[in-house]
């Protein structure tokens, strides 16, 4: 009995072992390798002494601080826009999204288009030699194509922000919509019956109801933008660049002695991501405790 029992309980572990092994080697191994290299251990280059120099160099460099600032800016602004318009579209369209397949399909389109495609499209549309600027010029609305505001390859990352917001608004919208559809109508009826106007129902009932789902979704959006790479590569400036692009440049630098700095930077990004995961877990726990007692 006992042996059979222990075999039975060991089975899931055995079945998962191949997958766990691959993930373990690639992920934990990768992190370990990055840690070792970030501490300056690169025997191929004759670097065998361990030091924290690379971390100090990265954290104190002007490029890093500018990149961190830009990354936080882009992630924050695109997250705020995403949540704001995600909630607004979900609230405004909640009946239409339920009743019309066409509108639901159109609403979900941004989720299906790859980031790279959106980034290239944004470059063609929004740059100073892009479609929009030329249309405005030929329409006589701006004196020259160069008078079009600098949205692409600019230091504020406007195009990057717009791409992420466009991509992720339906994500937050659908998360909120799921709440409105499951319990929103009933609670809205209660609130109406108790005298709440339309605006009051949205502010005091629908938005608080959606927060347990929307807050974790917000952290996911922020974490994703914080670490994402291809959109800032296509739409960003050379300096400052977002952290992921900076890490990529350091990694592909022809000077191999800069490899420890690249790895140190990667570990810093990983650490920030870890903090965001902890925040996410904390937020979901707070809301589930509130609900369940």
């Amino acid at each position: 009995m006992t042996s059979r029992h222990s075999v039975a309980s060991a089975r899931p572990a055995l079945l998962l072992a191949p997958a766990l092994l691959v993930i373990g080697v690639l992920f934990a191994g990768g992190i370990m390798l990055a840690l070792v290299q970030s501490l300056g251990y690169l025997p191929a280059l004759g670097m065998r002494t361990l030091s924290g120099d690379a971390f100090i160099a990265v954290l104190t460099s002007r490029g890093f601080l500018r990149s961190l600032g830009l990354t936080l800016w882009v992630a924050s602004v695109s997250t705020v826009l995403t949540v704001l318009f995600g909630l607004i579209t979900a609230l405004v369209l909640r009946r239409r999204l339920r009743n019309s397949r066409l509108i639901r399909f159109l609403y979900q389109i941004p989720l299906t288009v790859p980031h790279l495609v959106v980034a290239v499209a944004a470059a063609m549309l929004l740059s100073q030699s892009g479609l929009l600027s030329r249309l405005l010029f030929h329409g006589g609305l701006i004196p020259a194509p160069a008078a079009f505001p600098e949205l692409v390859h600019d230091s504020a990352g406007v195009a990057i922000i717009l791409v992420y917001a466009w991509k992720q608004i339906p994500f937050v919208g659908l998360v909120a919509l799921a709440v409105f559809q499951s319990v929103g109508d009933d609670y809205e009826s209660v609130a109406r019956s108790l005298g709440a106007s339309r605006v009051q129902r949205i502010r005091h009932v629908l938005i608080p109801l959606s927060l347990p789902a929307v807050v974790p979704a917000t952290i996911i959006v922020f974490a994703f933008v914080f670490g994402a790479f291809e959109t800032p590569l296509v739409l960003g400036t050379r300096f400052p660049s977002m952290l992921s692009v900076l890490a990529y440049r350091l990694y592909t630098d022809s000077d191999l002695t800069r490899r420890p700095e690249a790895m140190a930077l990667n570990l810093v990004i990983a650490l920030i991501a870890l903090v965001l995961v902890a925040l996410y877990r904390g937020a979901t726990r707070v809301f589930s405790e509130r609900r369940d007692g």
Partner: peptide, 20 residues
């Protein structure tokens, strides 16, 4: 007259207290 100005309050089968 819309529900919110009707002076009739409805209590539902499922209490529907605001969980937050």
């Amino acid at each position: 007259v819309p529900a919110e100005r009707r002076d009739a309050v409805m209590v539902f089968q499922n209490h529907l207290l605001f969980p937050f």
